[in-house]
């Protein structure tokens, strides 16, 4: 049995803060810039969603610049829920990228807005919306099968 991957919850919040800044910038930028920002953010989400938090550029900034100043974490967190949440973020940003590229600006911006709310909640109050949905979905899954 392998031990589930553990992550530093402060790193997740730091990443959520950077994600919020990128998504907010994408909302304000002209379409070509917004597309680049969202595509880049989708890649970052993809690293987390595939469980490679160590590859996430935000995680690397945290590990190199922020953690040395904070000291060791008092506790670690199971990576499964944040991994799932990153997948939810990835889905929303991919919808945004496709919609913006197809000229459906409103759809793209609203999808970005939803991802931004989730990222902000995580960054500001430490509430992980994607993680909370995880149990709701687990609850539904076997009933449907």
């Amino acid at each position: 049995m392998t031990r589930p991957l553990q992550v530093d919850p402060r790193g997740l919040r730091f990443s959520a803060a950077l994600t919020s800044v990128v998504l907010a910038a994408a909302l304000l930028a002209p379409r070509p810039v917004a597309l680049v920002l969202l595509a880049a953010q989708a890649l970052v989400f993809a690293t987390g969603a595939s469980g490679r938090f160590d590859l996430s550029p935000y995680g690397r900034v945290f590990a190199r610049v922020v953690r040395p100043r904070l000291g060791a974490p008092s506790e670690l967190e199971d990576a499964r829920a944040p991994q799932f949440a990153q997948g939810v973020g990835l889905a929303f940003t991919l919808v945004a990228v496709v919609a913006l590229a197809a000229g459906l600006d409103v759809v793209g911006l609203v999808a970005t807005g939803f991802a931004l709310v989730a990222a902000l909640l995580n960054a500001v109050v430490g509430f992980c919306l994607g993680c909370e949905t995880y149990l709701v979905l687990r609850r539904l899954a076997p009933a449907r099968a």
Binding site: A24, L27, L28, A29, G113, L116, V117, L121, V125, F127
Partner: peptide, 23 residues
């Protein structure tokens, strides 16, 4: 312009959810 409104809406929604959770 729509982007600015979505940004404002997202900020308001975040604040509302955060307050609700706290309560």
């Amino acid at each position: 312009m729509t982007g600015t409104w979505v940004l404002l809406g997202a900020l308001v929604a975040t604040a509302a959810v955060a307050l609700l959770l706290r309560r």
